[in-house]
Design a binder for these strands. Structure first.
Length: 846
DNA sequence: TGCCCCCCTG
DNA sequence: CAGGGGGGCA
């Protein structure tokens, strides 16, 4: 039977035969997962993402139809990039607080000052402004411009703006907006699903209530988009798509909570897009919107428009009143100041006066630029009138406030002409009355605070609202921030999406997203207010397509859709250079101290304190010798050959890139592992498996064919274990077994071919071919005395194979399984000497 | 789902 | 020997 001699036939026969003996092995606590355990493919992720989008879409639609406030709250205004809006909110709030503090001090100085009616002026104004802005037009230009040609994965596109990978994870965790889903599904030939929620009513049979809901929805959307555009000021500013989506969801909630605010005339501009230049990319979306506007709705829409106008009038009146209040208070404040210093300190007053003038002048300088860029694309020109100032962006309001201040200052200056021309030198007045000194001090303080406050306010406003045009959506995320004050009905702090976004930020450490809060807090240190716009850009690491693909592939292949804790190589320079600190939202995948880990020789520091388990001080010297010899061997470089040991950092020949990629691929990049490993840098604990470890493992195979993870840890105590190391060791033994069983089967068949009829004739001795083959494999140098027990086990194994083949059991695809079960019980105890890291020296020198 | 196994391929 | 796929098991 010559067939049995053929290895190829043997392979063919065993091919596809699953022989899982199901050996239950004690797994150590740190024992873990092989890289091959995750077999999720990219397509799987995509499919999951789609499913998640659709499910989220359906749930959202049901919520909106049922008027669930809380649920739609989750979709309120959120910056998927970490919330510039939140930042600007806190920032402007702090500024306004400064103002308030100022006024409060003046108030306490003389209790005639009226308290401000609102909590914060700016926030109030922003609120009002926001509430009015939605109507006349809808800022579809900016956001849709970059989204129309997005790929088949809208979610990916959204996250991609800020470098988020279009992973199933993000898809699943994010509330997929309907329009986004629509965009996606349009490419997937499943448009019905996305239209179902709000979608075009199926013909004329739609109920009026649904139409009204649709009306409201679009109106809200128009409002919000208009707000966004109003803030952008620049025609080319792009609204991050994700932001817009979430804002759309916020509108759902608005519809419930803010019904008294009728929708604007937004639908008018749907057919007539103001900017044709960007229509091309956004035409598809616009068509969608047009389709969603049935003709039957025009009538109700007109009513809504009228309502809207009334509402606007009312709000304008209120804003005017508020303006007058503020004006009045400003006047009072200045009068108080002047009264205080009028009779005693002309120079101080003059100083203050001049300072005020300077401030006003400075503020007025930058205001026109911002105002010109802002609102230039507004649809309603009449909105620029003073009465409708509130319809403009907050910048206009600030301009107005500045003008008032200037007016007051000039008025006050004219009232006291005699102070003009006096010296402004400080302390000139000399020690006068206590009132005088106190007044001076107060004046100084007030001047400084007012100066700084106003400067900061102006800078902040300019920063937030006069961001430069972002040509690509990838750059757009920090540019458009929606101060939460603009959404009075949205409690930004409780926004679940915000948290989700932050969590996402935490998860995707590879995505370098500057925390806008940090940008603002660090703003005073910025070179100048005019350079602010370029500050945020370098903080964004835009993923190149290759990077993106790499990340995506890696994530899908290595972790599937669950983990996502994989950190591709990023550009540390881009971040660390521009940020002297790590913002909370950014998590460096490879902390720089740890990044050096793979590149430093694990044998580099033989003199560290050895935290080993069962080692005495004399062994340390041996270990040092061993590591030294290892280092020498590896420095020679002929050990590794062509083998690419991804998990072993002990290969100086590997390039940094290769190592990084290997680390990523092999889950050695696990941060926990890295952080666990790093303390061992410089110690005698090796972070990787060396050729000697392989040799040792082979020798151990003579005793145990199925070592447990704990056993491996015990016998490789000089290796810092992690999942990768464990997997590699397990893989080693798996490969050993493979070779072992192949040899057994081969020799069993050979014996059968040789006419052996009984197992009694089969024996394994040190002279047998089988043993030589095995010894050549596991003990090539033959410098280790193979235990007798191994010969017995080999004989048993050979006989098992022989019997099985003779009995014709090899026709069973899993016929080896029974043999494996038998063999796995034949493991013997590994000598204690193998636990010593320098066992090789001791063993091989015997 | 994680872990481990075997099987196959390079 | 490593990588990856497929499968079993808890």
């Amino acid at each position: 039977m010559p067939d049995h001699d053929s290895d190829s036939l043997l392979n063919r026969q065993t091919k596809r035969r699953r022989v899982d003996i199901g050996v239950k092995r004690t797994v150590g606590s740190t024992a873990s997962s092989t890289a091959a355990a995750t077999t999720t493919t990219t397509t799987d992720n995509i499919a999951r993402a789609k499913a998640a989008i659709f499910s989220a879409m359906n749930s959202l639609s049901s919520h909106s139809h049922h008027g669930s406030d809380t649920d739609s709250m989750e979709c309120s205004v959120v910056q998927p990039h970490g919330g510039p809006g939140v930042v600007s909110a806190s920032d402007s709030e702090s500024k306004s607080n400064v103002l308030r503090k100022l006024l409060k001090r003046a108030n306490s100085y003389e209790d005639t000052m009226m308290p401000f009616p609102g909590t914060t002026i700016i926030s109030q104004l922003l609120k009002n402004n926001m509430a009015k802005n939605g109507g006349p037009e809808r800022g579809e230009r900016g956001d849709r411009g970059d989204r129309g040609d997005r790929g088949d994965r809208g979610d990916r596109g959204d996250r991609g703006d800020v470098g988020f990978p279009g992973s199933g994870l993000s898809n699943a965790s994010s509330d997929a907006p309907q329009e986004d889903a629509c965009s996606n599904s349009s490419h997937d030939s499943t448009p019905q699903e996305c239209l179902s929620p709000f979608g075009r009513p199926p013909g004329l049979a739609t109920f009026d209530i649904e139409r009204l809901n649709d009306e409201h929805l679009r109106a809200k959307r128009a409002r919000v988009e208009n707000i966004i555009r109003g803030m952008s000021h620049s025609p080319s500013v792009v609204v991050p798509a994700a932001s817009r989506h979430e804002r759309e969801h916020e509108m759902d909630r608005d519809r419930e909570m803010d019904l008294d605010c009728p929708p604007p005339q937004s639908q008018q501009q749907a057919p007539s897009s103001p900017r044709g230049g960007e229509v091309c990319s956004s035409s598809s979306r616009e068509n969608k919107r047009k389709q969603r506007l049935p003709q039957q709705q025009q009538q109700s829409f007109t009513q809504l428009v009228c309502q809207r106008k009334e509402q606007k009038q009312e709000e304008r009146r209120q804003l005017k009143l508020q303006l007058e209040d503020m004006q009045k208070q400003l006047r009072q404040l200045q009068e108080k100041f002047f009264q205080i210093y009028d009779s005693t300190d002309d120079s101080e007053h003059n100083d203050l006066h001049n300072d005020l003038h300077n401030d006003i002048g400075n503020m007025s300088e930058d205001s026109p630029a911002r105002s010109d860029t802002g609102g230039d694309d507004r649809g309603g020109d009449d909105l620029r009138s003073d009465n409708e100032m509130s319809d403009l962006d907050p910048g206009h309001f600030l301009d107005r406030a500045r003008a008032l201040l200037q007016e007051q200052a000039m008025l006050a200056a004219r009232e006291k002409p005699r102070r003009e021309g006096l010296s402004r030198s400080k302390g000139q007045g000399g020690p006068g009355s206590s009132m005088h000194a106190e007044g001076k001090q107060l004046a100084e303080t007030l001047k400084q605070e007012l100066n700084s406050a106003m400067t900061q306010v102006v800078d902040t406003v300019v920063k937030v609202f006069a961001k430069p045009p972002r040509p690509t959506p990838q750059q757009a995320f920090p540019s458009l921030s929606i101060p939460p004050e603009r959404f009075p009905t949205t409690v930004n702090g409780d926004n679940p999406n915000f948290h989700t976004t932050n969590q996402r930020l935490q998860c995707f450490g590879d995505v370098i997203i500057p925390n806008p809060l940090d940008s603002f807090t660090s703003m005073p240190g910025m070179p100048g207010p005019t350079n602010d716009q370029t500050e945020a850009i370098p903080l964004v690491v835009r993923k190149t397509p290759s990077e993106h693909h790499h990340h995506h592939h890696h994530q899908s292949s290595a972790v599937g859709a669950h983990g996502g804790h994989h950190h591709p190589v990023l550009h540390p320079s881009s971040l660390s250079a521009s940020m002297g600190f790590s913002p909370p939202s950014f998590r460096h995948p490879f902390p720089l101290p740890l990044m050096g880990y793979p590149f430093q020789s694990p044998l580099g520091g033989p003199t560290g304190g050895y935290p080993g388990k069962d080692r005495s001080s004399p062994d340390s010297m041996d270990l040092s010798r061993e590591t030294t010899s290892l280092r020498t061997k590896m420095a020679s470089g002929h050990h590794m050959g062509h083998h690419h040991r991804s998990c072993s950092p002990a290969h100086p020949g590997s390039t940094a890139e290769g190592l990084s990629l290997s680390l990523i691929k092999s889950e050695c990049s696990d941060l926990q592992d890295m952080s666990d490993i790093s303390p061992y840098s410089g110690s005698n604990i090796q972070e990787g498996l060396s050729p000697n470890h392989l040799k040792k493992a082979k020798l151990m195979f003579f005793y145990t064919r199925y070592p447990s993870s704990n056993m491996l840890k015990m016998f490789f105590s000089d290796v810092k274990f992690n999942r990768c190391i464990t997997s590699q060791l397990i893989k080693w033994f798996s490969n050993f077994r493979e070779f072992y069983y192949i040899q057994m089967e081969k020799f069993a068949r050979q014996a059968i071919n040789d006419g052996v009829t009984g197992v009694e004739e089969l024996g394994v001795s040190r002279d047998s071919e089988l043993f030589r083959a095995l010894n050549m494999h596991y003990n090539k140098a033959n410098d280790f005395e193979v235990p007798e027990r191994f010969l017995e086990v080999a004989e048993i194994t050979l006989r098992e194979f022989f019997n099985a083949i003779v009995a014709g059991k090899d026709v069973d695809p899993s016929w080896k399984k029974a043999i494996y079960k038998v063999i796995c019980k034949l493991d013997s105890e590994v000598p204690e000497i193998f636990k010593s890291p320098n066992c090789l020296q001791e063993l091989l020198h015997e």
